[in-house]
Computed example of a mutant assay.
Amino acid sequence: MVEIIKEFATKKLDLLKMEATEKSALTAGTLTFLVIVSVAALFFIILFNIGLGLLIGHWLGNYAYGILIIAGLYLLIILITFLSRKMIKNSVADKIIKLINS
Rank of each mutant, 00 (worst) to 15 (best):
L16A: 13
L47F: 13
E7G: 06
E19K: 13
E7K: 14
I50V: 15
G53V: 00
A9I: 10
I45R: 08
M18Q: 14
F8L: 07
T21I: 07
A28F: 00
A40F: 05
N49R: 04
S38V: 00
A28M: 02
I45C: 03
S38P: 00
T21W: 08
T21C: 04
L52P: 01
M18W: 05
F48Y: 13
V39L: 15
A20D: 03
E7P: 01
L26F: 05
D14N: 13
L16C: 04
G51W: 04
L55K: 12
A20W: 04
G29T: 00
L47W: 13
T27M: 03
K17F: 07
K6D: 01
G29K: 06
T32A: 11
A41C: 01
L55Q: 10
I50W: 09
L47A: 03
L31W: 01
V39S: 06
F33W: 06
L55M: 15
T30C: 02
L15Y: 11
E19F: 11
A25S: 09
A9R: 10
I46C: 10
F43C: 07
D14G: 00
L55W: 12
F8R: 08
A20N: 04
D14S: 11
F8Q: 08
K12G: 03
T21S: 11
F43H: 02
N49S: 13
L31K: 14
I46W: 15
S38K: 15
M18S: 15
K12N: 11
L34R: 08
A9V: 06
F44L: 06
K6F: 01
L31N: 12
L31S: 06
K23P: 00
A25E: 12
G29D: 01
G51T: 04
D14F: 04
L16D: 07
E7M: 09
L34Y: 10
I36Q: 04
A41D: 06
F43L: 13
L42K: 14
